[in-house]
């Protein structure tokens, strides 16, 4: 599996007559992990939903390509959004096409990849929050995506589970090398996972700052070089202006 190249050009989005995003331009190279941070209500999720094709831009465009083809995109939302009437494995197989035995086999493999192989036959209501979110991750992986969109996917789980899930994403990224666009309000999560962090701010939102996190993985959450990057990021969030820094 390879990653998609993402190109966003002068994107403007208006929802219910209210401009949300203004002149947003950025690009992600294949296999890059890009984090978008900003305070609540900035329009981070709207940007991600536009990339997912769930929101139509007013101006500008989004291009997600895998070589010459259109790329496969998978989304993990803030809530697991599992279909309660399907068992866990069926929820994962739900987004696939093709003959049932093949789908079942791939769903099992995807569940094993998120360490939920024993939960294939149970109902979503029997899962804990972290397990449900891992199922959502398996559902995204099963489509072999070129671009993985993560919309604050670990915001609703406890701190320990969040760290575990973050490590899991890193592990899966190492295996598949898909491109990731992660929306989060958690600076540490952005720094731990991303190659580059975009700071979104203002009304309507623009890209206010950009930060390179060129550090090898696996990273340590207590790495002083990583912690040193919190400062410029916090600064950019508080007083929006162009920042360009790099770690490592």
């Amino acid at each position: 599996m390879s990653g998609a190249a993402v190109s966003v050009q002068t994107l403007a989005v208006t929802l219910s007559g209210r401009p949300i995003l203004h002149e947003i331009s950025f690009a992600a190279t294949p296999g890059e992990v890009l984090a978008i941070i900003g305070s609540s209500g900035t329009g981070k999720s709207t940007l991600l939903r536009t990339l997912a094709g769930l929101v139509s831009p007013e101006r500008g465009g989004v291009d997600v390509r895998n070589g010459d083809e259109r790329a496969r995109i998978a989304v993990v939302f803030q809530e697991p959004r599992l279909l309660p009437w399907l068992r866990v494995a069926e929820n994962v197989a739900f987004v696939m096409q093709g003959p049932r035995p093949a789908r079942r086999q791939r769903a099992q493999a995807a569940l094993a990849a998120v360490r939920l192989e024993g939960c294939a036959r149970i109902w979503p209501r029997q899962l804990s929050g972290g397990m449900a979110q891992r199922t959502a991750l398996a559902r995204a992986l099963v489509t072999s995506p070129h671009l993985l969109l993560l919309d604050e996917p670990f915001a609703s789980v406890d701190a320990l589970t969040r760290m575990e899930l973050q490590d899991h994403v890193v592990e899966l990224w190492h295996q598949h090398r898909f491109t990731v666009v992660l929306v989060t309000h958690d600076i540490d999560e952005a720094l731990y996972l991303a190659d580059r962090v975009l700071v979104l701010g203002g009304h309507p939102a623009r890209v206010q700052a950009e930060l390179d996190v060129s550090m090898p993985r696996p990273r340590s959450r207590t790495d002083p070089r990583l912690l040193a990057l919190r400062e410029p990021l916090l600064h950019a969030l508080a007083t929006p202006r162009a920042v360009s820094a790099s770690g490592g």
Partner: peptide
């Protein structure tokens, strides 16, 4: 369901 996944913290 928890023991089935090998004691992984849910």
């Amino acid at each position: 369901p928890l023991s089935a996944e090998g004691g992984v913290t849910p």
